[in-house]
């Protein structure tokens, strides 16, 4: 709040006051009052004006300045009402009440949307469980009648399962509640599950699956980690180079402070101009356009899940050469203490 602006705001009042002061001066002169009395009246009146204005200015400045400062510095500025005290002057009280009402109505609206989101999320989760029942039946039937069915039948079922799962994790990473549970998890055990899930695709595509390094324990949710690794390995399979000996090499590196999983493939790689946006929502890039099957959601969800779990993810690639994704897990000494 600036004094100049404040005075400008009271310009009419000030002009009228000095106008009256002028008339008073002329009147007192006309009545031939004592000169000293005239000056004393003028000074007293001016003084009282300055005091009143200054007091009003300081009172308002205190309130408005803290209001503006908090709005600017709060991450969620709509919470500003919680940070200020109700002002003592009338206009401030009106403003405060208005803010309060606006806030309340907004919160009610947000809550309505939130409830809608939760309902929708619950419905999607339920729907996915429902879909998994016929999926299981079909998988079992495909196995029981494998002599009569083509191998690609199972491949399509796996594709369906992967797509359904992507939706499930999209819903989970968007939701506010905690859907995960952190515990000590063996990397090789999770890798084993991912490998088994992709076994047929890897063998079909003639991709060698290699694991290097000793097993390490990390603090994570094993189901989420399984989804993350599955997405990464699915990408490596999808974007492999045709007609060369393909491989996916997973190495586990344990350091004092952290554990790193590197997933390296010798696939078609990623254009350097696409790299910075690779984790963006719906980003498909050059490779996605070639394949046309890409939704651009996989790595976006992966990145968000990593963020929620507190893991870092890095990508490094040279077009037509390799892609390397690194997942970094920090070791938390707090948990060591608990053990």
């Amino acid at each position: 709040m600036k004094l100049k602006e404040y005075l400008k705001d009271h310009l009419l009042f000030l002009l009228f006051f000095f106008f009256l002061l002028g008339i008073l001066f002329l009147l007192q002169n006309a009545f031939k009052c004592n000169q000293s009395l005239i000056f004393a009246t003028l000074i007293l009146l001016s003084f009282s004006l300055i005091i009143t204005l200054l007091f009003d200015y300081i009172r308002k400045k205190k309130f408005y300045n803290s209001l503006l400062f908090n709005i600017e510095h709060l991450e969620e500025s709509y919470l500003v009402l919680e940070t200020i005290t109700e002002p003592t002057f009338y206009e401030g009280k009106l403003l405060y009440q208005a803010f309060y009402d606006i806030n309340k109505s907004m919160l009610e609206r947000v809550e309505k949307y939130q409830e809608g989101m939760i309902d929708f999320k619950e419905y999607i989760e339920m729907w996915i469980h429902d879909v998994k029942i016929p999926l299981s039946s079909l998988t079992l039937m495909a196995h029981n009648y494998q002599n009569q069915l083509d191998k690609s039948f199972l491949e399509q079922l796996r594709r369906l399962d992967n797509s359904v799962e992507q939706v499930l994790y999209y819903v989970r990473q968007e939701s506010v509640e905690k859907d995960y549970m952190i515990k000590e998890t063996s990397i090789k055990k999770v890798l084993g599950k991912v490998a088994l899930r992709n076994k047929d695709d890897l063998l079909e595509a003639n991709i060698d699956f290699l694991i290097e390094g000793e097993d390490a324990l990390v603090l994570t949710d094993s189901k989420w980690l399984e989804f993350i690794l599955n997405q990464i390995i699915n990408n490596s399979i999808k974007y492999r180079k045709i007609k060369i000996a393909s491989y996916i090499k997973v190495s586990i590196e344990e350091k004092e402070e952290k554990v790193i999983i590197h997933i390296l493939d010798n696939g078609i790689g990623i254009k350097s101009s696409d790299l910075p946006r690779i984790f963006d929502k719906s980003f498909t890039g050059e490779n996605g356009r070639i394949q046309r099957k890409s939704t651009g959601m996989g790595l976006f969800i992966v990145k968000n899940l990593c963020q929620k779990l507190g893991h870092k993810i890095k990508i490094d690639s040279i077009e037509n050469d390799y892609t390397k994704i690194s997942l970094i897990f920090s070791k938390n000494s707090y948990f060591d203490v608990l053990k």
Binding site: G192, L196, K199, L202, F209, I211
Partner: peptide
């Protein structure tokens, strides 16, 4: 079947090819 043998091998963290 070869697939059964392969599954058992992969289940034991032996990721071998055909």
């Amino acid at each position: 079947t070869r697939d059964e043998l392969m599954t058992d091998l992969w289940n034991n963290e032996e990721y071998i090819n055909d």
